[in-house]
Structure formats: C-alpha cells, structure tokens
Amino acid sequence: MRFILAPDSFKESMTAPEAVAAMERGIRAVFPDADCIRAPMADGGEGTTATLLGALGGTDVAVRVHDGLGRPIVARYGYVAAERLAIIEVAAAAGLDLIAADERDPLIASTYGVGEMISDALDHGAVRFVVGLGGSATNDGGAGMLHALGAQFLDASGVPLPPGGGALARLHRIDLAGFDLRVGAAAFQIAGDVTNPLLGPDGASVVFGPQKGADGHAVRELDAALGTYAGVVTATVGRDVATLAGAGAAGGLGAAFLAFFDVEMRSGVDVVMAAARLDEKLAGADYVFTGEGSVDSQTLRGKTPFGVAQAAGRHGVPVIAFAGRVSDAGVLHGHGFAALVPIVQAVSDLPTALAEGPVNLERAVATTCRLLALHEQRRM
C-alpha cells in the first residue's frame, strides 16, 4: 500500500517532520512493507521556511532582530542564492510562541522584527521573497514592519506613534519619505494561512485577537484602531485594504503587504504543495494522511489539511486527517475528508497532551491502519 504523509506541525507538540515520522511508525506497525512517501507540509506558519528550503535548497541565515515586545533575539530565514530568493516566516520574529502567555498583549506587540528580516535579506541581494504569514503575536496592521523599513507613523501633532496596534487609533499620517526603495524593486509572494479581511466580525482583531491575549475590550479597541489605520493607508497609497481577502492575516500584516508591496497573495499550503511536488506524489497513492493540532471550521479557511484534501480529491485519493482536537466534523466531512481522527486517547491536561503528541499520533495512525486492513481483507 502507498501512503502519502502530508501533515502540518502540531503546534507546541511536534514539527511537521516529527509528525510524519510518528505517522510512519504507526503505519509500519500494521503494514511493515508499506510505501510511505514523506511530504511534510506548512501553510505559511511555523515550518514554512524549513519545508521550502528542503524542497528548493538554500541556506539558513541568522539575523539579530526584535521580537513582538521589542526584545533582541536571533531569528532565521532561508536564502536561495541562485534565485536571489528569501523565505521568511513572520513567526520567526513576531511569533506568539516567542512570548510567554502572561506577557502577550496585541495592543503593544509589533511586527518591527519582520521588517528587520526583510531589510537583512535585501542586504544579501534578495529580489524575490516568499513570506509566510502565520503564528504572529501582533495586531498592528504591519505598521511595525513598515517602520523598520523606513516609514513613519505620526499622530496629529507629527509625533511618531509607539509600537503596537492600540496606538494606531491616534494615527494621522504615514510618511514614506524614508521608506526603503529596494522594497519597490522586489517581488513578494505572500503565503497566507487565512483569508480573513482586516476589519469586522471576521477580521484580524475579532477572530485572532483573543488567541493573542486580547479580552473583549481590547478586541473592540484594536478593531477600531485598524479601521483608523485602513483609512490613513487609503489616503496615503490610494488602496482600500479594509475588506480584501487575506488583509487580516497575521494581525493585519497582510494589509500592509497588499498596500505597500508588489505582492501576490497565495494560499500558503498551495505554495508549499507546489514546491514539494505533492501532485506528482499523489499519483498512484492509496491513502493520504494529514493533520495538525486542531481541525475545525477554521480549517476550511486555507489551512494545511484542507489544501491537502483538495489536492488529493483531484486524484481520487481518500484523505484521513488526525488532530489533537476535532470539532465541526459534520462540516468538514463535506470537503474532501474521508475521516477525522482525534489522537488524544484519554482525558488529560494540555501540557500532558502536547508532550504525548507523537506517541498519541502513532497510536491513532496504527489503530486507523488496523481498520483499513480489515477493510482491505473484506475487499479480497
């Protein structure tokens, strides 16, 4: 039997390659001679750089930048010198995982470090960029990134604003006189994992703000501040980004790319699937195993399992998704998933579930394969 193993990472539990290894162990416990094709995935968030570098070649570049709270860190991005291509994950500089849970505050968190990474890649000679949007701790509309590249965000008195999404409520003018001209000569492909707009009930603040530490009051404050920001952006560059699909990605960072960069917005998983040549690997496969930490209705907004299911569907290959948490199964079954399998086998606290993720995934895959074996026997 031929299995394609194409999961994303299981956040805070295992990387995509680790998930692939656990899946393979589970398969071989039942089908020792199975043909297991490894195809770790990503959708613009964690693991995007490593996955694309594995597919395209290139080097890992370390650069000193600032995290979402302005603290100095070392971030890494990929560089393919032959193509002058930089591969950047927003989460490497402005990631939620870089900030302790009790310190998370999207009112003050900034994407400044993302701009520092782009500037360093430009210094290396990059003229093409793939930027993975996902896993950010920020809700500043990309203002911090633009500031790192030379833009100034000023209040009505001409005073520069402090970092963070909350301060954008006082934004009056964006000064682009010092903006890095090299940005205009570079092409950016944005690998996003969501299609949410910037504002409103489906926007960056309402949908993702609570995950980043925003309570109800902060969510309303951030949404209003991004509304002010969107108005000033329109006055500055003549483009209304408030309702564009993907503008709400990474706390509105998508809006900054759409407004100020030569950009192509693509589903992050589509970018990775193309680089990994997943379509070629699907030919002749019996099953595809995918998954990530949580599978729910948000999965349909461009997450890895949905992208993999759509690709497999074009080849008529059944897809089974594994996750630490499964909800909205009735909705998902109508979108290409043959089965949705929760991997947690007993009631436990979150730290335990995360620590036991690889073992639980291996067991869940093995159990699923035993059921597949029964099915195959009955077909004979």
Rank of each mutant, 00 (worst) to 15 (best):
H217N: 08
A259I: 05
A39N: 13
E18P: 02
V194E: 05
L226Y: 00
G252M: 03
A242S: 14
D223Q: 12
P210H: 10
E12I: 04
L374D: 15
T290W: 05
P197Y: 07
D215N: 12
S205K: 11
G178C: 13
T236D: 12
M380P: 11
A93Q: 03
R239F: 04
A285N: 12
A121L: 03
D120V: 06
G95V: 08
R277H: 10
L354N: 14
Y287I: 13
G334V: 10
P160F: 02
G57M: 04
L226T: 00
F3T: 10
L361E: 11
L52F: 02
L374K: 14
D328K: 06
P72A: 11
S348F: 04
D270F: 08
D270G: 13
L96V: 03
I108E: 14
R25N: 08
N360K: 02
I27C: 11
H172L: 14
R28K: 15
A55W: 04
S205C: 06
R71D: 13
G45C: 08
R370T: 07
A50H: 04
V272C: 08
C369Q: 02
A177Q: 14
T299V: 11
P201G: 12
A230W: 00
F129D: 00
D140I: 06
P210I: 03
D35Q: 07
G192K: 00
R170A: 14
D33M: 01
P17F: 11
A250S: 06
V30H: 04
R64N: 12
G231K: 06
A321E: 12
T352G: 10
V206F: 07
V20K: 01
L300D: 07
A55E: 05
R301M: 10
L244W: 01
P342A: 03
D60S: 15
G58L: 03
V219G: 00
A42R: 06
A62T: 07
D8R: 11
G291M: 03
H124S: 11
K212L: 00
G334S: 11
G209I: 00
P160Y: 04
G54Y: 06
A21L: 13
A6R: 06
Q189D: 13
F306G: 05
G26E: 06
A214E: 07
P160D: 07
A364R: 05
R370L: 11
D97V: 03
T290Q: 13
G164N: 08
T243E: 12
T111D: 03
L53R: 02
L98E: 01
G164W: 05
R379S: 13
G178A: 14
S13C: 14
L282H: 05
G57N: 06
M23A: 13
G248P: 01
G293W: 02
V63E: 12
V159D: 09
S157E: 12
G45N: 08
N196S: 09
G200P: 05
G216I: 01
A167V: 02
A55M: 06
C369Y: 02
I73Y: 11
G227D: 09
T59K: 10
L354T: 10
D123L: 15
L53I: 08
A137L: 02
A151P: 03
H315E: 08
T236G: 12
Q310K: 04
Q345W: 03
T368K: 06
E116L: 15
D102K: 04
M380T: 12
F257N: 01
S205L: 01
A151K: 00
G227V: 06
A91M: 08
P197M: 07
P305V: 08
A218W: 00
A250I: 00
L222V: 10
V271K: 01
M14W: 11
L372S: 02
